[in-house]
């Protein structure tokens, strides 16, 4: 079927397991590796291993970090009063880019979806509850739920708010609607209708 040697084939196989990488790209990447000097490849493979060896979840917010407590949770400049709850670590990066949020985060690492067999125990909900019930928990005044506006996101929001309600903490969710800088006429009907639904007083 193919003329590649086993080691090369192995590498191509591994590359093609990566997201967005097809067989052809995987082959190109593998061939590229064969041409690199040895120290470069060593550096590359060390970088890969270090991800697994050194990265861990932050003890507080469950974001990925090299330390016991991540830089955001450790920063004295960030407020303990507001916690923003997100699905994945990349959502933290997205919100951080805005430079507008000065609170802290909590990363769920997934979302409740019985269809995919993901229940409350499979994501970092108990960690969140422990955090809210812990000593710094009393400082928390508001939880911002920044989950995706899908059925799974919405029901996770409803579930979390049921759990958190007895704790008497203000719960908010991010708004949804028309993207900034776009024209109303280009918005699709559903987004527009939901934006109408979520209108606010001027």
């Amino acid at each position: 079927m193919n003329n590649n040697t086993d080691v090369l084939e192995n590498l191509i196989e591994e590359f093609s397991k990566l997201p967005q990488i097809g067989r052809k790209t995987a082959q190109r990447l593998a061939m590229h590796i064969t041409r690199r000097p040895k120290e470069d490849v060593e550096k590359f493979s060390r970088a890969l291993l270090e991800i697994k060896d050194k990265l861990r979840f932050c003890n507080v917010c469950c974001n990925i970090t090299e330390y016991e407590i991540c830089r955001i949770c450790d920063s004295p400049k960030r407020s303990n009063n507001v916690i923003c709850i997100v699905e994945e670590p990349q959502d933290v990066l997205a919100i951080e880019k805005t430079n507008e949020f000065k609170g802290k985060y909590h990363v769920l690492h997934g979302i409740i979806s019985p269809l995919d067999g993901i229940g409350p125990n499979d994501i970092k909900i108990s960690e969140l509850l422990r955090r809210l019930g812990g000593e710094s928990g009393s400082e928390v005044e508001e939880l911002i739920l920044a989950l995706n506006p899908t059925v799974e996101g919405e029901t996770t929001i409803l579930y979390l708010s049921r759990l958190i309600k007895p704790l008497d903490i203000k719960i908010t969710r991010i708004a949804r609607g028309i993207p900034i800088g776009s024209d109303l006429e280009f918005a699709d009907e559903v987004t527009l209708a939901k934006a109408l639904e979520g209108r606010v007083v001027v």
Binding site: P114, G119, P120, T156, Y159, L163
Partner: peptide
Amino acid sequence: QKNALLKNYTVFKKYSRSQFEDLVQS
């Protein structure tokens, strides 16, 4: 999703009762 939830609970005994209650109410 709700059907999967009911099935997970009734057939596969997946969640605790209180957890299920909160989930199904959501």
